[in-house]
Amino acid sequence: MNTLLSLHNQIFERVERLDGLLPLLARFLFAAILVPYFWASATTKLGDGLLGFLFPSSGAYAQIFPKAFEAASYNTDNLGVFHWAVVVAGTWTEFLLPLLIVVGLATRLAALGMIGFVTVQSLTDLYGHGGIAHEGTLGAWFDRAPDALILDQRALWIFLLVVLVIKGAGLLSVDRALFRLSPMSPARA
C-alpha cells in the first residue's frame, strides 16, 4: 500500500509542476470555443461603413436594450446618449476583452470583465428577451440535461474565466513576458 501511495505522490507532484499549462489550456479553449461566438456577436452590432464601430446597427440596440428599443418604436433616434454609449462599449468589449485573453495581456482583468459581460448578457437574455419564461433557457442544475443556455453553458464559461482570474495567463502570454521584464520581478532581484 505504501508503494502505491508513494507512486501516486511521485506522479502527481510532477503533474502539479505543470501549473502554467492549466491557464494556457483555459486560454486555448476560450479562443477555440468562445472567441468566435463573441466576435460573431460583436460584428452583428457594427453599423455600416468605416465608422460602424462608432455608429452601431439597430440590431445592436435590439440585442442590448430590447425593451427600451421597442418602447422607442425601434428607432435609434428616440434613444439617448446613454443607450448609444452602452451599445458602443458593449460592442468594443466583445472584441477587445476576448483578444486580451487570447494573447494573455491583462488577463486577470480581462477575464473579470468577461465574467461581468457574461453576467449582464445572461440577465438580458432572461429578462430583456423574456428567456425566463421558457423553462429550457434558464435550465436547472442536477437535472441530467447539460445544455441549458444559462445555468449550464454560462456557468462553464464563467468557470473557465475564473481559472484565468485565479491563475493568470500562464505560459506563452504577454503577461508572463512583461512580468519577466518588470523591475519588480523576483528573477531580476
Rank of each mutant, 00 (worst) to 15 (best):
136 G>I: 03
118 V>G: 02
90 G>K: 12
54 L>G: 02
103 V>D: 07
109 L>S: 11
70 E>K: 13
39 W>K: 02
56 P>K: 00
32 A>F: 11
136 G>R: 07
25 L>G: 15
87 V>C: 10
117 F>R: 02
133 A>I: 06
71 A>L: 11
126 L>F: 04
88 V>Y: 05
33 I>H: 06
110 A>T: 03
102 V>Q: 11
76 T>N: 02
43 T>H: 01
101 I>W: 14
14 R>I: 03
83 H>S: 11
94 E>S: 13
70 E>D: 14
30 F>C: 03
30 F>Q: 03
85 A>W: 05
63 Q>S: 10
17 R>A: 05
93 T>H: 08
141 W>C: 02
156 L>E: 09
145 A>V: 15
98 P>A: 09
36 P>I: 01
96 L>I: 15
85 A>Q: 07
20 G>Y: 07
48 D>F: 00
38 F>C: 03
29 L>C: 13
62 A>P: 10
143 D>T: 10
149 L>F: 14
17 R>G: 10
111 A>H: 05
102 V>Y: 14
150 I>S: 09
68 A>L: 13
98 P>T: 12
83 H>M: 04
58 S>L: 00
86 V>D: 01
128 G>P: 08
115 I>T: 12
24 L>M: 15
18 L>W: 06
14 R>H: 01
59 G>P: 07
16 E>K: 08
159 F>D: 06
157 W>T: 09
133 A>M: 08
150 I>E: 10
122 S>F: 00
56 P>R: 01
142 F>M: 11
72 A>C: 11
19 D>S: 08
89 A>M: 11
148 A>S: 15
44 T>C: 01
111 A>K: 07
132 I>L: 05
154 R>V: 10
18 L>G: 06
98 P>W: 13
28 F>C: 14
96 L>R: 10
87 V>A: 12
84 W>G: 05
83 H>E: 15
107 T>Y: 07
35 V>H: 09
32 A>C: 08
135 E>I: 03
94 E>H: 13
127 Y>N: 04
